[in-house]
């Protein structure tokens, strides 16, 4: 439950957004973030469907690499 996933915002609608990571798109909530909210193209750290903090693109890339390595290790 504590594993956060950095996701890229694709579109915004009200307090929700569509965001994607590793080719998966899902709806997330933005209501835990202080205003002003992120824009499409920005990255956020997502926990159980809620963005908890903004992150930069470099960090998101590094996290995705780690994530993929873990999933690969898990399958091995």
């Amino acid at each position: 439950m504590c594993l956060g996933v950095p996701m890229k915002i694709v579109s915004l609608h009200g307090e929700r957004a569509f965001a994607e990571a590793l080719g998966v798109r899902r709806e997330i909530a933005l209501s835990l973030l202080p205003q002003p909210w992120p824009h499409p193209g920005d990255y956020v750290m997502v926990h159980v469907g809620y963005a908890i903090e903004r992150v930069d693109a470099t960090l998101a890339e590094e996290s995705h690499t780690l994530w993929q390595a873990m999933e690969a290790g898990r399958d091995a």
Binding site: M1, C2, G4, E15, A29, S31, L32, H47, V48, G49, Y50, I52
Partner: peptide, 17 residues
């Protein structure tokens, strides 16, 4: 709900909807 702050904050946001 079991979880630490990372889970309870989203639950708190849910309650505020």
């Amino acid at each position: 709900v079991a979880g630490f702050e990372t889970t309870l904050a989203p639950v708190a946001a849910m309650l505020a909807e």
